[in-house]
Write a protein that binds this DNA or RNA. Structure first.
Length: 542
DNA sequence: TTGGTGCAG
DNA sequence: TCTTCTGCACCAA
C-alpha cells in the first residue's frame, strides 16, 4: 500500500488569503490610492504594495530607495501601526466564523476554515454542483471516497465566502480548497489575485513536486533549509527519498515526521480555532539609542499605546516582557534579549496613577539587560504583556466562549459607529465611570455614550448570530451544530474525538442546554443591567 | 518559569 | 543585505 492510499480525504479545508492586505486596507481608507502604485512603509522598508506597484517590480521588504528607483511615482503609506490592519483582520475572521466554528488565523491576512460539517449538510440536499474557479493539475482520475464531491462543494462555498468578504468589507481574497491545511494553503497561491484554486487528492503529489524550493513548505525556513542542504537534501524528492530516519537527527522525531509527510502532501493537523492572543506586544526599531532618557521616552510611548491595546482586549495581564536588540558589529543575526517580570494586576484598575509604577518595572528590566554606566547602542525596543488573567465572573467556560464572540463583534461595532476614517480615540477609562454610564446614560453624546450604543450593537450581532436563523439561505454555525455531533467549544477537541459517539452526543446536548441557559441570562442582563454580571464586567473592562 | 531561536505573514 | 512588526511553538536550563 502506498503512502498516498493511507491518506485520509474526509475533511474539506478552505484557506483564505487576503491579497496585499495592508495595501487593500489603505486603499479602502483612501480610495485615491487605488489608481496609483502604492507601497506600505515600515521604517525604510516597503513591506507590501498594491498590484499597480508590483508591475514596476516592487517586492516585499524592499528598501524604500530601491523601490523609488524602480518606480519614482510610488506613493507611500505608513504602516508601522498595525491597529487598523488588526481590526480589519478580525472582521474577516468574524465573517468566516459564520461558516464554521473551526477557523484558525495565521498572521493577520490568512485563515483556515474547516467546512467539512457544512459540506456534509449541503451534500445531503444536493450534490449536483460543478467546480468553481481553477483546478490544480489533472482531475480526470477521480478518487471514489466522496472527496471529489466534497471538494467540489468546497469550491462553491469558497466562492460564497469570498463574495461575502468582498461585499461586506471590500476586500479581495485568494482561496485554496483541499482535504488538508497544507495543500489548501499551497494551492491557493497558484492563481492570484482574487482567484481560487482546488486540488483533488490525485494531484496532491504533483502539486508538491512542482514547488521550486523547500522553503515553500510551511515549517521549513532559512535555518531548516540550510540544515537539510548540509546533508544533501535540496529538493522535495530528496526529502521523500531520504526517509524520516535521515531527518530525525536534524529536526527531532516530531518535526521530521511532519515534514516528511508534508513532502507527500500529507497533513493530519487539525484546524485549531484561534482563541485570544497569548501575548499583546509592540516594538519599535530605531537607528541607535544610547542615552537612558531616550530609552525611557521610547518605552513610555510604547507603554501608552500598549495600554490601549490591552484595554481593548479586556483581560488583565500578569507579566510584562521587555525586548532589546543591541547593535551588533558582526551584523549577523538580529539577536534580541528579553527580560520579564510579574506585575501586580491591581495596577490595571486605575490607569494614570500606575503608569509610573509599570514604567519603574520596565526600567528595572532594562537595567537587567543594559549596564547604563557603559556605552551602549540599542536598535530596537519592545514591550509585551503575557499571561492574562480572565476577569472574574467569566471563569465559566461557556461565558468565556460567549465573551470571545462578543469581543470579535465589538471591533465591528466600534468602527461602524465611529466611521472607518476617523483616527482611533484614546479609549481607556476607569470602571466606575463606565458602570455609572450604563445605569444613567448622560443626555449629551460623548465617548462614553458611544460605548453604550456599541454594547447594544454587540448584543444585536450576538443575537443575529445565534437566533436569526429563519432564512435557510443564511447559514449559521449553530444550525450545523444542532444537526451533527460537534465538539463543544469549551471541551478539549482531542479528548472529545476519542469518546464514543453516545458520549459525544451527550456532551453536545449538555452544551446546548448550558448555552441556552446562558443566552437567557445574557439577554436579560442587557435589558436590565445588574452589578457583577457578565455585562457589567464587560463595560468595566471596555 | 525564563530566555532564546525559528518560523510565519 | 535578512530589513519591519508582530505572535506562536518549541527547546534548554
Amino acid at each position: 500500500m502506498s503512502v498516498f492510499e493511507l491518506d485520509d480525504h474526509s475533511r474539506t479545508i478552505i484557506h483564505i488569503d487576503l491579497d496585499c492586505f495592508y495595501a487593500q486596507v489603505e486603499m479602502n481608507k483612501n480610495p485615491n490610492f487605488r489608481s496609483v502604485p502604492l507601497g506600505i512603509q515600515q521604517k525604510n522598508i516597503v513591506v507590501t504594495s498594491n498590484y499597480k506597484a508590483r508591475e514596476f517590480g516592487i517586492k516585499k521588504c524592499m528598501l524604500i530607495a530601491e523601490a523609488k528607483k524602480l518606480c519614482p511615482n510610488l506613493v507611500l503609506a505608513n504602516g508601522e501601526d498595525l491597529h487598523d490592519y488588526r481590526q480589519t483582520s478580525y472582521k474577516v475572521t468574524n465573517l468566516l466564523q459564520k461558516y464554521s466554528h473551526l477557523v484558525e488565523r495565521l498572521g493577520l491576512d490568512e485563515n483556515f476554515v474547516d467546512v467539512t460539517a457544512l459540506i456534509n449538510e449541503k451534500l445531503k440536499k444536493s450534490s449536483d454542483v460543478e467546480v468553481v474557479g481553477n483546478i490544480s493539475g489533472d482531475s480526470s482520475e477521480k478518487c471514489d471516497c466522496g472527496c471529489t464531491e466534497r471538494l467540489t462543494m468546497g469550491t462553491v462555498i469558497a466562492q460564497e465566502i469570498r463574495d461575502l468578504i468582498k461585499n461586506d468589507l471590500n476586500l479581495t481574497t485568494c482561496a485554496g480548497i483541499a482535504h488538508n491545511k497544507l495543500l489548501a494553503k499551497i494551492v491557493g497561491s497558484r492563481h492570484k489575485p482574487d482567484q481560487q484554486t482546488v486540488v483533488f487528492p490525485n494531484s496532491a503529489l504533483e502539486l508538491m513536486l512542482s514547488l521550486d524550493c523547500l522553503t515553500n513548505i510551511p515549517g521549513i525556513g532559512r535555518t531548516t533549509f540550510e540544515q537539510l542542504e548540509s546533508v544533501g537534501i535540496k529538493t522535495i524528492e530528496d526529502l521523500q527519498n531520504g526517509g524520516v530516519k535521515k531527518l530525525e537527527p536534524l529536526l527531532g522525531a516530531d518535526k521530521a515526521r511532519i515534514i516528511h509527510n508534508f513532502s507527500y502532501g500529507i497533513d493530519k493537523s487539525q484546524v485549531k480555532p484561534t482563541g485570544k492572543p497569548q501575548s499583546i506586544g509592540l516594538e519599535d526599531s530605531c537607528k541607535s539609542i544610547s542615552v537612558e532618557k531616550e530609552v525611557r521616552n521610547k518605552l513610555e510611548q510604547l507603554l501608552n499605546r500598549l495600554l490601549l491595546l490591552v484595554a481593548e482586549d479586556g483581560r488583565i495581564p500578569k507579566t510584562i516582557k521587555l525586548t532589546v536588540r543591541k547593535f551588533n558589529k558582526e551584523n549577523k543575526v538580529s539577536h534580541r534579549e528579553t527580560r520579564q517580570s510579574n506585575i501586580n494586576p491591581s495596577l490595571f484598575s486605575n490607569q494614570s496613577a500606575n503608569k509610573t509604577k509599570i514604567m519603574t518595572t520596565i526600567m528595572h528590566l532594562f537595567n537587567r539587560i543594559i549596564d547604563v554606566k557603559k556605552p551602549y547602542h540599542i536598535t530596537l525596543l519592545g514591550l509585551s504583556f503575557t499571561k492574562f488573567q480572565e476577569p472574574p465572573n467569566l471563569k465559566n467556560s461557556v461565558a468565556s466562549f460567549l465573551r470571545r464572540d462578543l469581543e470579535v463583534q465589538s471591533v465591528i461595532s466600534i468602527e461602524s459607529q465611529n466611521g472607518v476614517d476617523e483616527p482611533e480615540s484614546p479609549v481607556p477609562s476607569t470602571s466606575s465611570v463606565e458602570l455609572k454610564d450604563v445605569e444613567s446614560p448622560s443626555p449629551s453624546p460623548s465617548p462614553k455614550k458611544l460605548k453604550l450604543s456599541n454594547l447594544v450593537t454587540k448584543k444585536r450581532c450576538f443575537e443575529d448570530y445565534y437566533e436569526d436563523c429563519e432564512s435557510p439561505s443564511k447559514l449559521k454555525v449553530a444550525d450545523l451544530c444542532l444537526e451533527s455531533v460537534s465538539c463543544p467549544p469549551d471541551a478539549d477537541q482531542d479528548v472529545f474525538k476519542e469518546l464514543p459517539l453516545e458520549m459525544q452526543k451527550e456532551l453536545w446536548e449538555d452544551y446546548k442546554r448550558r448555552r441556552s441557559a446562558e443566552m437567557n441570562l445574557c439577554s436579560s442582563q442587557v435589558k436590565k443591567p445588574k452589578p457583577n454580571t457578565l455585562l457589567n464586567y464587560f463595560i468595566r473592562n471596555n
